[in-house]
Nucleic acid binder design. Sequence first.
DNA 1: GCCTTTACTTCCTTTTTGGTAAGTATCTGT
DNA 2: ACAGATACTTACCAAAAAGGAAGTAAAGGC
Lengths: 116, 116
Amino acid sequence: MAQNICPVETGLQFLSGRWKARILWKLYNGTLRFGELRRGLSGITEKMLAQQLKELERDQLIIRTQYPEMPPRVEYSLSPFGRSLTPVLEALKQWGNDNQKQIIRLKNQNAKLETK
Amino acid sequence: MAQNICPVETGLQFLSGRWKARILWKLYNGTLRFGELRRGLSGITEKMLAQQLKELERDQLIIRTQYPEMPPRVEYSLSPFGRSLTPVLEALKQWGNDNQKQIIRLKNQNAKLETK
DNA sequence: GCCTTTACTTCCTTTTTGGTAAGTATCTGT
DNA sequence: ACAGATACTTACCAAAAAGGAAGTAAAGGC
């Protein structure tokens, strides 16, 4: 994470990458195990999930709880700091809903441009 | 822009990359010329600025106006669609302000971990 | 005729991110 | 003794994003 001055960029750095926002979004509905997350995030590999969870934990957005059982059980949940991102994620969700049509139109349009 | 189902991820795709949010943030205060943007975004190269502006224009978040003068004058401003992202950017800014201390602490901490 | 200004583009290299496939540890059940 | 379950790790490769340096076009001023 490089230096930054722009207040708007700071938050985005915590959500950067293809999976972090999606992982957090899942955890907003409550605690989940590693395997539950993997099954819930279609397309993610175990490597990416483990890596992203580790970064989210390092950034203190989530809490990892390991139970001394075998086979292992590890649960992930949002920390208060993680919950503090709620307004951002809600705003993103709202925007996505409000602008669905425009977004779909754009995607089709951009897809066409690429193949030309 | 790949398929996506997560409503929260959609918005982030429009802000992805190191510069887009910062560019939009600058434009919230009004129209700016290419050179003004370049000077305002410390560290950006002309190549990156041109590329990102082109993508933002393709995504219809900004409007490019070219004047038939020489040397050329090109102005960039937010479109209504770009303005619709205001709540997201405001939420990000707010979060950055509210959590300044925590964020700085985290950055120092993570920086230390890296060098170890 | 040449330098300056502005808004780019092009080519090439480096860095970062994402992905695939295989392997590991440990206990339970058969 | 061996397969299955769970939560990972490791080595390697591919793709995407970012960056540096140089070049381009067109008019005006000296």
